[in-house]
Design a binder for these strands. Structure first.
Lengths: 163, 163
DNA sequence: TCAATGTCACTGAACGCTCAACTACATCAC
DNA sequence: GTGATGTAGTTGAGCGTTCAGTGACATTGA
């Protein structure tokens, strides 16, 4: 198929099947999780991620560029996202005390409350659609596989936002 | 964390680690693949998927709603996407011969050529970033895991577009 | 035959993301 | 110091997706 004059290492039938299953599983899973989160808590998954990362920091605050890194995001996307989170009163910006270029995103009380309200439902959804479907051995396999995929990609573009 | 008065089945440390690795691996992998495809072939992954599905059909044609289903897409998204593919001359629309509500998307010669030009690079990228990172046993595991995640999600919303 | 209901596909507005500037500040070399 | 380069963060335009709504046609049942 698709006239092959080059030395392309095409996928064989088994690999095709794996790739399709992987593609479809991901699409379905993340669409579902994002949809349920938006429906129940009026926040897209990207916002949820940002709130989670902030909530894990001491002082519930983090510099914008570091927040972008831990969220696998870009500075641009984060800047837009934090602007919208600020409109909702869930995050506020402060200027960095030492580096005058810097901005620090701080999770507000309302933001933490919104996260606390959203988390149980979301975690349940992750369980229902992911962990409950897998055996303990498969969960362990999934972790190893994910790390094997992730780590090389982290090394190629470690700074200044992933994509 | 996050004051727990309900009976939420929170993720333990090991599950957290798995979930984070899975999230990050997916984000990095699909961002990378989409980025390389856009850069090398000027088409987002969603378009590529549509062209692939069409190319696999007899006559390289498929009804819109069926194309939406096999692409894990919605009719709305597909309608917009095909409109843009039509502007590029890669797909054309015909009216369904029997059901006068229906529209049929047909892959043009140019569309097939664009796909043939894009495929080798994309397949290589999938190999580099996915299959080359995994052992044969892990590939087999990934297939089983993906199917275990996918199949229940397919049953819940089988018709009228996934999300 | 005819109304009610369902299905197919399209459309426009709103939203989030990407990309390419751009400003402001920091750092480095000389 | 001064100029060059690097880094932090923001902004606006363009693109793709989602959502709600719409019109056209098909199907069903009385």
């Amino acid at each position: 198929m698709l006239g092959d004059v080059t030395s392309t290492r095409w996928l064989d039938a088994e690999e095709q099947r794996t790739w399709r299953a992987f593609l479809d599983a991901n699409k379905l899973l993340f669409d579902r999780l994002d949809h349920e989160l938006s429906r129940d808590s009026a926040m897209p998954h990207g916002y949820y991620e940002i709130l989670v990362r902030l909530s894990e920091q001491p002082g519930r605050a983090l510099r914008m560029s570091q927040l972008a890194q831990t969220s696998q995001s870009t500075r641009s996307r984060l800047s837009h996202a934090v602007a919208r989170l600020e409109e909702r009163g869930w995050v506020r910006r402060e200027s960095h005390p030492e580096d005058r270029r810097g901005a620090v995103a701080v999770l507000t009380g309302e933001g933490f409350a919104a996260l606390a309200a959203a988390a149980p439902g979301h975690v349940e959804a992750v369980r229902r659609h992911l962990f409950d479907r897998l055996t303990p051995a498969q969960v362990e396999q999934l972790r190893a596989i994910s790390e094997a995929i992730r780590d090389p990609l982290l090394e190629v573009a470690p700074s200044s936002g992933s994509p």
